[in-house]
Design a protein around this nucleic acid. Sequence first.
DNA 1: CAAAAAATTTAGACTTACCTAAAATAATAT
DNA 2: ATATTATTTTAGGTAAGTCTAAATTTTTTG
Lengths: 219, 219
Amino acid sequence: MYSQAEENYLKTIYALEKDFGNEVSTNLIAGKIKTKASSVTDMLKKLANKELVIYKRYQGVYLTELGRLSALKVIRKHRLWECFLVQKLQFNWDEVHDIAEQLEHVKSELLINKLDAFLRFPKLDPHGDPIPDAQGRVLLSKTLSIKDMKIGTAGIFVGVKDSSSVFLQYLNKKNLALGDKIRVIDIEPFDDSYHIETKTHRLVITSNVAENLCLKNVK
Amino acid sequence: MYSQAEENYLKTIYALEKDFGNEVSTNLIAGKIKTKASSVTDMLKKLANKELVIYKRYQGVYLTELGRLSALKVIRKHRLWECFLVQKLQFNWDEVHDIAEQLEHVKSELLINKLDAFLRFPKLDPHGDPIPDAQGRVLLSKTLSIKDMKIGTAGIFVGVKDSSSVFLQYLNKKNLALGDKIRVIDIEPFDDSYHIETKTHRLVITSNVAENLCLKNVK
DNA sequence: CAAAAAATTTAGACTTACCTAAAATAATAT
DNA sequence: ATATTATTTTAGGTAAGTCTAAATTTTTTG
Ligand SMILES: [Mn+2]
Ligand SMILES: [Mn+2]
Ligand SMILES: [Mn+2]
Ligand SMILES: [Mn+2]
């Protein structure tokens, strides 16, 4: 099938299309994948030859239907393995992403479908991201980042945009966990920092943090 | 740490040393790994530079202590994953080897030790092979292949030398499973075939098959 | 022991996935 | 509209791991 490098590019392009709209630029990809723009160009040509993306020189890329489905298969594997690590092996949510980066490339449809059944067909991974089914169907629940909320409104903390261990350990330290109800108390215009409160405490977060917290609306 | 290719060579050299005694030859390795002798030579130089093997031109190789321990770590991972696949995901014993070939290269000590605990520290994999512990200690129970048995003697079928799905499916078809008591009824000198019997049936096997069945002595 | 055969190594080439530096193109600013 | 800057691509190179063909060394055989 596809190489690990190809799979990583597909996954990355999928994520960037979602965050920035179609037509993903070379530099954006290079930034995410921590590689050089010239390497990205090489790979985009290869992906285009395999009909996984549409690529026009200087114009960026977007996934074809085949590319989208292939990306979703990798994402499905990544998120199912993360569930396994947390639910069965007692890992913490901040420890699983890098291991799942490796496990996601193991090739076996049967394996991943049996893993899905073993975990009882989970719908969300440990970071609140939806798990595509075997056909590549995925529910996209529209959540708000704290940055999009007005002062005084509240929501349930249901996901993170950044799954890196540094960020998740920051949240652990600040006692913020999925399921918490968070209210925006105030926004400081000077530095764009956010005063928020949960049932148990109040704290100030930077706009960088605010952007990476996904809430679901609640009355 | 080491690349997948390096890990595969280490594992293979370890297995060949066991089967053929120390000083493993280039061609033997090439045969097992399904690669060309010239590729093996290249890799042996690399492994020697990393002090994983002792290699003298034209003289074959053997593992250093570091090489032996590194090989055992890969074998430990391979066998634990096979246990997981059979015990938790309900795979058959003939389906797991190729998937474990991929999973064995996932890098995380914590992962493999947690997996070990999750499986309750199994001592044997689904093919009867012993699982090294986290320190690389492994029990080497001396078993006989049917080829080493005299007419009239019997033993318990405790392991296979060949874990390929073709061979295991042959055993399924012939109704031979780990734990069966097998008696050697007769050996045909003409073609070196073996007449054997279990509790439920008799059959004839070739010497090729006989060689790959490991029995434990029983009175 | 010398010749033939077998095993092993070397030489040179290929693919994948990277890289740096230079050239080309697009976007922005004056 | 042109000049400057930013982005992207091309050109050429590297390392890992493989290959084929040729050279070398070891082993076997008459
Ligand atoms: Mn992740
Ligand atoms: Mn990955
Ligand atoms: Mn195996
Ligand atoms: Mn392997």
